[in-house]
Each structure stands twice: as structure tokens, then as C-alpha cells.
Simulated assay, not measured.
Amino acid sequence: MIAFVEADETTPYTEQLKESTGPVVLINTFTVPEGRTEEFLALWRKDAAYFQRQPGFISTQMHRGIAGSRILVNVAVWQSAAHLAAAHSNPGFRPGGEGYPEGCTVSPHLYEKVAVDGICVG
């Protein structure tokens, strides 16, 4: 089972999923015990394949920390928070991170693109 850690205690992930906004970017930070990364990635691959089949899914990309880091970060884009919430409530989803290596943590948080004049678009 994976331990859930809020990325921002003032804005719980479950509350973010209730927002009627989109598109949204899910940045999901995982800490994986040493020597368990390949086991973790095998399970994550199955979960990612499930999410790819859900309505509103746009893309995902996993990133691994370098120099021996135990941190992995998934960046996923969804059409809306509602689409992601629906994917979480679908009976095909494994709630609570069942099967992940003991000692793993997850910190999901939703974001929107921000326009910064002359730098990036919203």
C-alpha cells in the first residue's frame, strides 16, 4: 500500500478534484524505497495504461530523479478535474495504491497553466 501525503495541506487533492476547471495538470510525486524502483514502475505502468483509456485523458510522462534519487514525478494532463475524478471513481481503478512496494509515498496535486507575459502562454 502506498502512503498518501498532501502536497499542500491547505488545499487537499480531494477538494481539487471537485473543481470545475480544465485543462488541469496532475503533478504526482512519488518516493520509492531504495532498490524498488523497477517494481514500482511495473505497477505504475499498469495504472497509467488504465488512465490512458479513460475519457478526458490527454498525456502522461514519468520523470526519475538523477544521482541516486528515490523520487519519481508523473506529469499528466487531463481535459478537466472532473474527468480525472471520474477516472478515480471508476470500478477499474485500484484505490489506495494497492500492490505498490511498502514504504512508497505519493503526493498528487492539480495545477493550471499560467500565462506570464513574454515568457509562456496560459
Rank of each mutant, 00 (worst) to 15 (best):
P33M: 04
P55S: 07
A85H: 13
F93A: 08
V116G: 06
F57L: 04
G35S: 01
F4G: 04
P91M: 10
E112H: 13
G118K: 10
G99W: 00
Q52T: 10
A67R: 02
L43C: 06
L43R: 12
T105D: 05
G97V: 02
N74C: 09
G99S: 06
S89W: 10
A3V: 14
H88G: 05
E15R: 13
A42C: 11
P91A: 07
H109E: 06
L41F: 14
I66A: 05
L41S: 12
G99E: 09
L84S: 00
D47C: 03
V121M: 10
E15Q: 15
K113D: 10
A67F: 05
G35A: 01
P95M: 08
G96W: 14
Q79W: 08
V106H: 00
A81G: 03
T14P: 08
H88K: 11
T105W: 00
G68S: 09
G68T: 02
I66T: 06
S59M: 08
E6A: 05
A115S: 12
H109Q: 08
I2C: 01
P33K: 04
L17G: 00
G99T: 03
P55M: 08
R36Q: 15
N74T: 04
T31Y: 01
F93K: 09
Y50S: 03
V114L: 14
A87K: 00
S69E: 01
E6D: 11
S89E: 14
Q16K: 02
G103P: 03
P95N: 02
N74M: 08
L110R: 01
G35P: 00
A81P: 01
F51M: 04
G65V: 03
V32F: 03
A115K: 10
E15S: 15
P108Q: 09
V121Y: 07
A7Q: 12
V114R: 12
F57P: 01
G99D: 07
P23K: 08
V25M: 11
V75C: 05
T60W: 15
I2L: 15
A82C: 08
